[in-house]
Design a protein around this nucleic acid. Structure first.
Lengths: 174, 174
DNA sequence: TTATAAACAGACAAGTCTGTCTGTAATATT
DNA sequence: AATATTACAGACAGACTTGTCTGTTTATAA
């Protein structure tokens, strides 16, 4: 069996993503992770610290999945279209729960800048990904914006309709 | 002085929008609205009912503000650009707190479909607004997607940078 | 002026939350 | 084998949550 720390992160990943950050308590996390409360606070000094550890783990996971999904294609345009197919795959896998980072963004208060920084760093990495792939500054911002709304709108309407539309738009754009 | 119901909605509007839905308790709302708890539950059967009343009030307010802002322009293209200037105005007015509807979307659980329906209705109205203004189906979806991400990204980065970029994109698009 | 309605204050129940603490059991290292 | 570390169980504090309830005061209407 994995270490307590791993079990906590894995359980928190599922629960935060499924129920939201504020709606998930430490007690539920440690109970489902089979970890004692004292052990939890030995690894994480607070719930906020766990949140940051979760976001970092999520960043690693999500990005490597995106990259390997995109790598299936050869040319730049096909890679971009694959990125949107990646959204569709994740929607199915995770029941249209949207983006962990943006979900938590909506839940945190002004005081929690530590968390905000991690979210911003993640999205800056995503922006850089598109910039490297596309080159042109304005066009890559354009694609990034469509990518972001494609995720959110599929969460909102529980449907891939606007992801598909985004693909059509990009097809006519590039 | 206004009625208790009005005071509750007004206070909840500020607090939900500033602190988030789950982080705002009934006790804080009634205390800042100067309303007795019994009076609150005479007007709203639950916090969820208040949430729906708030979203409806927000819908009315936000949409009429958008329409009057857009009406300043004559032609279709100028109206669309004005819609993005409306985002900039609201960002300044409300400290980059983003969209109330999408914020609450991130906080609710699977079971709260009543709230989800109100959010979806709001966004469908927004989509219709762009469709009426533009005509073309795919293009109006395109503008809608850019509009949505413009709001979210300005909340995320506490900046109007990507709203301005969206305006440039639309300028070259139409 | 009397009767009806609405808003008031605030205690209370029953549950949640995070974080601390005590003490025991299992595991690693020397 | 003895020591040091790590994880365990779970009680506890203190503060929060939503919603109910009792009783009082104010405002409206007959």
């Amino acid at each position: 069996m994995s270490s307590p720390r791993e079990r906590i992160i894995n359980t928190a990943s599922i629960l935060f993503h499924q129920q939201g950050y504020n709606s998930t308590g430490i007690n539920q996390i440690i109970s489902e992770a089979n970890v004692a409360k004292a052990s939890f606070y030995q690894h994480f000094k607070s719930k906020e610290a766990l949140c940051i550890a979760f976001l970092n783990a999520r960043h690693e996971y999500w990005f490597s999945e995106l990259l390997s999904f995109v790598a299936k294609a050869e040319h730049s345009k096909a890679k971009l279209l694959n990125a949107f197919d990646f959204i569709i795959q994740m929607n199915q896998k995770e029941n249209f729960r949207g983006c962990s980072f943006l979900n938590i963004l909506s839940e945190i208060s002004k005081e929690q800048d530590d968390i905000l920084s991690v979210i911003q760093a993640h999205k800056n990495d995503l922006r850089s990904f598109f910039e490297k792939e596309i080159g042109d500054e304005l066009l890559s911002a354009h694609i990034y914006l469509l990518f972001e709304s494609a995720i959110i709108e599929s969460q909102l309407f529980k449907s891939n309709e606007l992801v598909e539309k985004s693909k059509k738009i990009i097809d006519s754009l590039i």
